[in-house]
């Protein structure tokens, strides 16, 4: 399994053969609370690192999911749009949001590994 990286905006990313799979972290779903709606990007959309690409709404509020890397959207996870509660149940497993064909491998360096992300979470409470 490819190495997983994390952003400060609480997205996870996993790269295999130049394609990045992106989701939100378990911490993020916990902060959101019960997810009731997910809006996914269109396939083929070119996204820039840091751009708001998807929307996730809980009973409480709407939040944006940012692209942790630049590239072209190649797939979206329709299963979470059909059953948004999956984001709570399987945030770092089956509930990925979208896949991006990486435009710049170098952007991955700015992201955290699991240990760095866990340390970052400790600074938040």
């Amino acid at each position: 399994m490819a190495d997983r990286k994390f952003s400060k905006e609480h997205e996870w990313i996993e790269v295999e053969s130049g394609i990045a799979t992106i989701g939100v972290t378990d911490y993020a779903q916990g902060q959101l609370g019960d997810v009731v709606f997910v809006e996914l990007p269109e396939i083929g959309r070119k996204v820039k690192k840091g751009e708001a690409v998807a929307v996730v709404e809980s009973v409480k509020a709407a939040s944006e999911v940012f692209a942790p890397v630049s590239g072209e959207v190649t797939a979206v996870n329709k299963a979470i749009a059909d059953d948004p509660a999956k984001v709570n149940a399987e945030a770092e497993k089956a509930a990925w949001f979208f896949k991006v064909k990486l435009a710049d491998q170098g952007e991955l360096k700015a992201l955290m590994d699991r240990a760095a992300y866990d340390a970052f979470l400790k600074t938040l409470s």
Partner: peptide, 12 residues
């Protein structure tokens, strides 16, 4: 308290 461990959906 905005919510307890069960969460807003279950509480509602």
């Amino acid at each position: 308290p905005v919510q307890y461990p069960p969460g807003i959906l279950k509480e509602h």
